[in-house]
Design a protein around this nucleic acid. Structure first.
Length: 157
DNA sequence: GCCAACGTTGGC
DNA sequence: GCCAACGTTGGC
């Protein structure tokens, strides 16, 4: 029985927001369209059912963490890669030989209080987050300590 | 809109 | 395998 892990996933709210996720059937969505190898590897190999996800709005005004989600399906091929009509087609990826993978996540709860990036950057204990260290990765690992700090910020009145 | 950081591509 | 050029991300 492996330890529950934690992640942070970015989305541009103009493209897909946390509200969009909540509005899905079962508040669940395929996390398709990721075309970065590091992010793919984490989704394919490391993300397990039950893992916690912080949902982060990038390219937003202001950017920040908006809520939590949970992994409900582990890595499987991203079928949008071989759909020429999709937003991120990649002809190298086929059903027999998939290049890109995704997971399914389900919304758990919106934070009572939005946690802006500005505050994440200023909070002791969060300095080592890839988010703070200028990483563009759209799927990032989060430690248990970081998870607890951010959830506390999001719960604050 | 600017631009720094970083990943990817492709010539050699 | 190196590395310059180029494209993308994403905060500001």
């Amino acid at each position: 029985m492996s330890q529950k892990r934690y992640w942070l996933m970015k989305s541009e709210p103009g493209a897909y927001s946390f509200s969009d996720l909540i509005g899905e059937e079962n508040s669940t969505a395929e996390w398709d369209g990721v075309r970065n190898y590091q992010a793919r590897n984490m989704m394919r190999d490391d993300m397990k059912i039950g893992d916690g996800v912080i949902f982060y709005h990038s390219n937003a005004k202001p950017p920040g963490a908006v809520g939590t989600a949970v992994v409900v399906r582990e890595g499987y091929p991203d079928h949008t890669a071989w759909d020429s009509e999709s937003e991120h087609p990649d002809p190298r990826s086929t059903p027999d030989n998939p290049v890109w993978y995704m997971v399914d996540i389900k919304a758990v709860a919106e934070f009572e209080r939005f946690v802006p990036l500005r505050e994440i950057k200023a909070t002791p204990g969060l300095e080592e987050m890839p988010l703070v260290k200028n990483s563009r990765l759209s799927v990032q690992p989060v430690t248990k300590q970081e998870w607890d700090i951010i959830l506390a910020l999001g719960a604050q009145e």
